[in-house]
Amino acid sequence: MAWYFIVGIVVVLIIIFIVTYNRLVRLRNQVRNAWAQIDVQLKRRYDLVPNLIETVKGYMKHERETLEAVTKARNLAQQAASSGAGERAKVEGELSSALARLLAVVERYPDLKANQNFLALQEELTSTENKIGFSRQFYNDSVLRYNNQTQVFPSNLVASVTGFKASEFFEVTVAEERKAPTVSFT
């Protein structure tokens, strides 16, 4: 009788272990998927920036510094493309704010705003910025749920035995990033 009891408990424990393990795998896969989505959008932005600079260069003779800042931020971001979420969020944040400054300056160039090519690029860039924001949102939500699962009892036991580590959030630290910059005509 006691034997059946012990075997029963072991079987139940094994089932719990398998279920918890599978849930952790599912959540981790979701985090990876979400990260891949951010990556796609960030790469898309690297591709868009040179086109944008090429298009606006002819119009913006007096904005060399702004343009250079964007190019520099883009190159820095691309170099950091293989580093972790925390490091990457920082450089991408710089690129976001440099781009926001550039797009704010555009308001001073009515000719540019009539250029079809530029308008198409602007739409793409605005949308890519939004997509980065939304994929970041989804990624951070996924990380939160995954990290919670690796920390609460009893799944933290399974996580530590099978080597699930907490993921890093993608937090953009640059302030005012999603707010549009203010333009001053001085």
């Binding site: 949308s127 939004n130 994929s135 989804f138 996924s142």
Partner: peptide, 11 residues
């Protein structure tokens, strides 16, 4: 683009 943005946001 807007639809794609929300597709990403909703997962």
């Amino acid at each position: 683009n807007v639809v794609e943005e929300l597709k990403i946001a909703s997962g």
